[in-house]
Design a protein around this nucleic acid. Sequence first.
DNA 1: TCAAAAGTGTTCTCCCTACACCCATGG
DNA 2: CCATGGGTGTAGGGAGAACACTTTTGA
Lengths: 227, 227
Amino acid sequence: MFKYDYPHPAVTTDCVIFGYDTREGLSVLLIERGIEPFRGCWAFPGGFMRIDEDADTGALRELKEETGFEPLYIEQFGAFTDVDRDPRERVITIAYLALVKKGPVAGGDDASKARWFPLNAVPALAFDHDRILRVAISRLREQIHFRPIGFDLLPPVFTMPQLQSLYESILGTHFDRRNFAAKMLHLGLLEADKERSENTPRRVPTTYRFNKDRYEEMKSGGFRIEF
Amino acid sequence: MFKYDYPHPAVTTDCVIFGYDTREGLSVLLIERGIEPFRGCWAFPGGFMRIDEDADTGALRELKEETGFEPLYIEQFGAFTDVDRDPRERVITIAYLALVKKGPVAGGDDASKARWFPLNAVPALAFDHDRILRVAISRLREQIHFRPIGFDLLPPVFTMPQLQSLYESILGTHFDRRNFAAKMLHLGLLEADKERSENTPRRVPTTYRFNKDRYEEMKSGGFRIEF
DNA sequence: TCAAAAGTGTTCTCCCTACACCCATGG
DNA sequence: CCATGGGTGTAGGGAGAACACTTTTGA
């Protein structure tokens, strides 16, 4: 039993985890809640922050425990503090945006209850997670202009059409093939890969890899991708 | 006395309040702490979030109580959660960035202990407020590319040199007069003001006001100011 | 009349945009 | 051989960057 002179809210972390594949586009990882409140509803993985860990650590811990994924990118993007957002007690949540390489959910006790949902097929969510998701998506769309975080969502070797459809999926727009390729190549972050990808239906596209060294150089000195 | 099965952190809000005038450039409003811990140190206005208010409300309340200012712009920009950031107990803070029209600190019990500090003369701060300030500044610099929040820091009628030196002060750079003016006028957010400003040392600059209607139009449809 | 600050226009370059044709592959 | 998708180049326009001289005003 822990006692305080003034009431204290509980603090949780929640992770909005995005993954991508060509079939489904941008997807988000949700967990079906096994307990009340909102039992049976889908929600972001997350949980109570421990008193001896900071929120970043807590978010990472919950992410790994509940999904088994190692995020390639993770960023705090907001605290959600509505008074009635949790029926049990006053709970505020610190929300994180994470990018992972999409795959079957591997680890965790709740693994069987986790599932990827394409962004256009997300069910109603528990708590205020609908709002959190909307904020996360708009943050992701902003961030993609400043960091090449899109690359984290692709396999190490990828084709230009793949990269384009990833960006289109995230930004919800369509680009001209030629202009998109020119712009990307112009950035100098891509290097052509010798090998050619297999399993393509028609003509074999050339493959690229992401040049991390070049990116590190560019980070110091500002960086902006216009779309 | 409030009891919980698990330990709960305390939650505060802190406001990084920016103001601007031509003499001192961009300044931040600090309050000298009258109580331990960090008694006598300078810190951002803020305080404990009440259990029956959300963080936005709490931040606004504290801002008004402690400084008497009405923010022209306010935005949550991060939760700071280091385990040892407060020696008393586990305290996390939700940090806000606010812009106000700079003036003498008017209201509040602690008014006499509040002071504006130009950004290049900020003293060592209490808690982790140094870090919070650094994050706030970089956020402000980002935001100024997307919203004309700079205008909130100027008087309703202002001159082009004033506007330019505000932007230079925030971004820490220098712009070519002609290019800056052209860019600003091109945005269509400024309208020339009939009256001329007084009290200028040399030639009288033309004055402008900010066209809010035009800004509202531009918000829906995206908006980017390049520098 | 001089010093200090404000006003103004042009050129060059780069990047974004729009757009059409050819090529490789599998069926 | 044809359908599908991948690859490529060019012309035009707009915006940013660099840059110098003239005007106003108070001292």
